[in-house]
Design a protein around this nucleic acid. Structure first.
Lengths: 338, 338
DNA sequence: ATGAAAGCGCTAACAC
DNA sequence: GTGTTAGCGCTTTCAT
């Protein structure tokens, strides 16, 4: 193993100089810097992570806690994880992957061991039991999602309330008067993950304001359950011409079912999805959608985490709600003339 | 921060004793052990990861390198990552997430810094440039996938050759004489990831042996490309009654298209998928499939990695090919009587 | 069965 | 602009 001391010897300087060349915490003459860099290169030196963590009290690791098996659409989680990892590298940080089933124990372990400098938590429940531990241990942390009580915590999330409203507004502006929200599975609402409820709330408020008749049904996302939900909606509200789909798993079945029942999209029926762009683009027809900005959420989470570690103790903005972006594609068109 | 020294003082023993209680590397009297454990509990002590890594030359971290954006089905990657993480915890290890785009640099960085004790690499290409670096740096490593030259490397993968064959055998045994393989996108074959080619090879050999007419078409997985592939197959081989689908993204479009064209599954046409069980189960009808044993692959990879770290230097088995399991469900049925 | 003490490789005062 | 050196918290000989 190549050590900093060896690099120093090879370069003919002191160990601390090598350290300072690396950390840029003190000015170094060009000549010295060159010698050191040459030695580093020649020896293929990499600082020992553990030694550095011990001496500096900084591990340069961000812990990311993600759901083990989730109701949420897996690609979204994956995209967030990749965004976090990529952005973290920009700050010279690595990412440690933890599963949510480690729960409060996991948070304690990370906080206590100095394994990570900060934590990023996903799948936040309204009354998430990890939050008190975060507060108690004073671990720098960023939540992706919104808990009931977020005081003093950094949070990032899509503005789901505005998202629900945006979908209604789009359909209403096209002249649809009867619309339906095909939501997440029952479990998601009961686990109080917040986002589904917030979408629903925005959906209902906007519908009320715009005078649009709106129904909501939760849906498990299988072909059968989607078929059941769809037929119930069409029985109760035969004039429904607009659908908002929140459960990504239900998208394919819904399109397939509409096609089978002879309702053309977008000629007879409009569909607006809340899903990653990738999903909206690969469907046929390409879907009008509000995208889930997984990449941006992940990157922002990292930046908020880094801000907490930074000495420049700027006032931490408590909650970052990313405004929804609705992209009009091929699945929505003017509805029945009123 | 609670240190081992504080625990020692509180328990009235020496620091080394506390260390030995933790590592179980020396026998400790029951009484001493109890005192130490009580102190640990009372103080909420967690060993400092960096200090431990420095002193022991073991980080208790496994690095997992996964594709950033992949041709492979995302849920499979995710499931492997989760399996690795879960299994790693069983060995007291944590998982560091790296992206494949860090490439050989990433491998060098990890190997040189002692950040991880071993690496697990996914998305292995036939001539993967990370492999020489692994050899050169003598980093303990496990590959999930099969490179062209695997000498001296631990590998885990599904036996895709046998998988392709198993699908053919199943369809042949049901009396299908004309079958088609809807494969991965062109890119996957060209990037030489091996698994797609191995499946094809097994498919073709088995077909030849069993006297079944077989075609293969690559498919990007979008609705349009699936439609194109399907219509071309049906033009060229109108008697095709059996499909094997390897590209998971093509499953939903294929089922939808078959339904539209009036071919009932499984009455008129049989479909066998190569996909995670979860996907096979949520389709309608539930699909006969060879499952991708993501969980088992991840767990085995961890065990192989741990075996390399272990002093008990048992002979390392070079390649672990997991035999395919075909589960008969509702999408396959007897074909045309010959 | 337990203790004392020498590092592990790096950072960051404290010198100059 | 550079060197000297005292730790960081733990593991692990070497003693007893």
């Amino acid at each position: 193993m190549v050590t900093l001391a060896e690099v120093a010897r090879q370069a003919g300087v002191s160990p601390s100089t090598v350290s300072y060349v690396l950390s840029r915490k003190r000015s170094i003459s060009d000549e010295t810097r060159r010698k050191v860099e040459a030695a580093i290169e020649a020896l293929g030196y990499h600082p020992h992570a553990g030694a550095r963590a011990l001496a500096s009290n900084r591990s340069n690791i961000l812990a990311l806690m993600i759901p083990l098996r989730s109701d949420m659409y897996v690609p979204v989680i994956m995209e967030i994880a990749m965004a976090v990892t990529t952005e973290a590298r920009e700050f010279g940080q690595d990412v440690l992957l933890l599963t949510k089933d480690e729960g409060t124990q996991g948070v304690r372990r990370i906080a206590g061991s100095g394994l990570a400098d900060a934590m990023i938590l996903m799948d936040i429940e309204l009354e998430d039991d990890r939050i008190p531990v975060l507060r108690e241990t004073e671990t720098p942390a960023v939540l992706i999602g919104l808990p009931a009580e977020s005081a003093g915590l950094a949070c990032v999330d899509l503005d789901f309330e505005a998202t629900g409203a945006a979908c209604v507004e789009h359909l209403a502006s096209l002249g649809h008067r009867d619309i339906a929200l095909i939501g997440e599975g029952e479990g998601v609402y009961q686990r109080k993950t917040g986002f589904a409820a917030r979408t629903l709330s925005g959906f209902q408020k906007a519908a009320a304001e715009l005078g649009v008749r709106a129904v909501h049904r939760s849906c498990e996302g299988t072909y059968e359950s989607t078929a059941g939900v769809l037929s119930r909606i069409m029985e109760e509200r035969p004039h429904t011409t607009g659908f908002v789909v929140q459960n990504e798993a239900a998208i394919a079945p819904l399109l397939s079912l509409l096609r089978l029942s002879g309702r053309a999209v977008p000629e007879d029926t409009s569909v607006v999805a809340i899903c990653p762009d990738q999903v909206a683009l690969q469907a046929s027809p390409r879907l009008t959608s509000v995208s889930i900005p997984a990449d941006e959420m992940g990157r922002r989470a990292v930046r908020l985490a880094m801000a907490q570690l930074d000495p420049t103790d700027g006032p931490r903005e408590p909650i970052t709600l990313i405004p929804p972006t609705l992209s009009v594609r091929e699945s929505s068109a003017p509805g029945p003339a009123a």
